[in-house]
Design a binder for these strands. Structure first.
Lengths: 311, 311
DNA sequence: TTTTTTAATTGCTTTTGTCAAACAGATTTC
DNA sequence: GAAATCTGTTTGACAAAAGCAATTAAAAAA
């Protein structure tokens, strides 16, 4: 993968900036006679919970063995950690935080939170959210394990100003990128949104949005087109958030909403390209009720219709 | 301003994460026998260019005076900086990087860039851009002086999939927040975008987008509705980017495009609420050609029409 | 069994950073 | 205008943080 020089420059400047900021944020450590390395060890120990050895810490934290040994020794003499001899290897010890250790860590984080609170105090609420989002993005992009978990995702059912546009944006850009659709597809999406917004009626229509912070990252809708049938539309999960059950959750919500509104059937139109989505539809009881080859969105596609009976 | 606990938690985790990363990014410093503090001093000296004193460095970098004195002494003996006695105050010295000092700094940054390059190497290009954007956002929110400058903004004239949706999103959410418009406004915007996308023709229509990284932060369009007149639409600059001339640049581009396409007149419709925009219109030669009080977007508004003759 | 490797520790050293005192020029006070 | 105070910088003494190399003891390989 090639590296963008502008990006390198920004990372460099950011690093430079953050070096100053870190000094401020980590100042409270001195009050507790801990070095930054010692704190990192404590945090890592909490993360690993059990079966953490010195070697693991050295590998993970990039810390010198001798130095670490002394840090651990002082932790032990302060009863912050407990050592347990491995019976697989007589040289290694399993390290574990004691209750006292956990408590100290909490106190430290309390102190850190106070520092951060002071830093954030003059920042408007909305910018605070944007900050958290940006930091999460940085971590998410740079680290393998800062995976987003289902608990980070919230859901909402109301459509607020800006939502429709953002959904259209997601559809337009993602389908262009992932399926190669052209602008015509966004035009079509725009039309469907216009028709929806014009005739929106909460007794027959229902939108669900999956949110990460204040960002929409997934969507689905059921639109009552007749007294008996409702159309499912705009089923999409942002690629960064796939594979953690958001799609299934949205689908379940949509089916339940259609049932609550007493529709007898849900139908939807998709293409044969949408393999992941169609397999999810089938798993949830939908069956294919039609297909049609046709030129669409600049490609030659197979349009598929799926249906499910709700009674 | 109240502080969001979730945000504090994310900042804390980010800090924790970045402490590990910083260790990696700053590793190359050791090769040049420099401490992080020493590097920060060098960078600050370059920034300040002239008339930088030890006191200024102490205040800006939060570094101990004694320690700094030694750092500077070593810099001087290595001919990285030159000292010049102040004639206003016999105690102070003006510090300045020598050519050798600047060169060292460049070498260091080269090393840093290599580290960063390695870090970014496995990251897809698009994510790299998102990373830079997120880092810029963090700096921008937390520091007063990381202001966005006009040079950071790029412009493009082509409409890519996802753009229309994002513009609709910006209009819907910003007008809701800043002017109190309801969903009807987004419905209307949706309609205008649908009409535009349906009939898009580059010989008469032109969109301009102001970009920060890969994010749209401003827009304008001229839409040829007849052979003689073109309508200006979607003039908007994201609030975080106002006041640095983006609006004027967009307006100029739009007027020029209308002239190039040989339209005789531009008209636009806005409301009396849009004080900043209308004053910009007037400054650029537009005159008010009509107004109408009416209920709109959930409010009682005064719709205004502006025109400019291009011939 | 011997050799080699590996996990952890210990001794020694350098680097980094802090604190308090000293110093010298500037400013204020009487 | 001399004494006292304050300010910007330096120096000395010291402590904490971190790195390096040698050592130990257990495990794995030869």
């Amino acid at each position: 993968m090639s590296v963008n020089l502008e990006v390198v420059r920004e990372v460099s400047e950011f690093n430079n900036y953050y070096n100053s900021l870190a000094e401020l944020l980590n100042r409270h450590l001195a009050d507790n006679n801990l070095s930054l390395s010692a704190l990192r060890v404590l945090i890592k120990l909490r993360e690993e919970e059990e079966q953490c050895t010195a070697g693991k810490l050295i590998a993970n934290l990039g810390i010198d063995g001798g130095y670490l040994s002394r840090i651990l020794k002082s932790f032990e003499s302060n009863q912050l950690i407990a050592k347990r001899k491995s019976n697989l290897d007589g040289r290694t010890w399993y390290l574990q935080l004691t209750a006292k250790g956990s408590k100290l860590l909490e106190t430290l984080e309390q102190g850190s939170a106070e520092q951060i609170g002071k830093l954030l105090e003059p920042v408007p609420a909305e910018q605070q959210l944007a900050l958290a989002g940006a930091m999460k993005t940085v971590r998410h992009i740079l680290s393998d394990d800062a995976k987003i978990s289902p608990e980070d995702i919230t859901y909402r059912r109301d459509l607020q100003p800006g939502d429709a546009g953002f959904l259209m944006h997601m559809h337009g850009s993602l389908y262009a990128k992932e399926a190669g659709y052209n602008l015509e597809f966004e035009t079509h999406t725009c039309k469907t949104f216009y028709e929806f917004l014009e005739a929106y009626n909460s007794s027959k229509d229902q939108v669900f949005l999956a949110m990460h912070g204040n960002q929409i990252i997934g969507s689905i809708a059921v639109l009552g087109h007749s007294r008996y049938a409702t159309q499912m539309r705009w089923f999409l999960v942002h690629p960064d958030y796939r594979g953690i059950g958001i799609g299934q959750r949205l689908l379940t919500e949509a089916i339940n909403a259609a049932k609550e509104k007493l529709f007898q059937k849900i139908y939807l139109i998709t293409t044969s390209q949408q393999v992941a989505a169609t397999s999810l539809f089938k798993k949830n009881g939908f069956r294919k009720s039609g297909e049609k080859h046709m030129p669409m969105w600049g490609l030659q596609l197979t349009e598929e219709r799926y249906e499910i009976d709700l009674i």
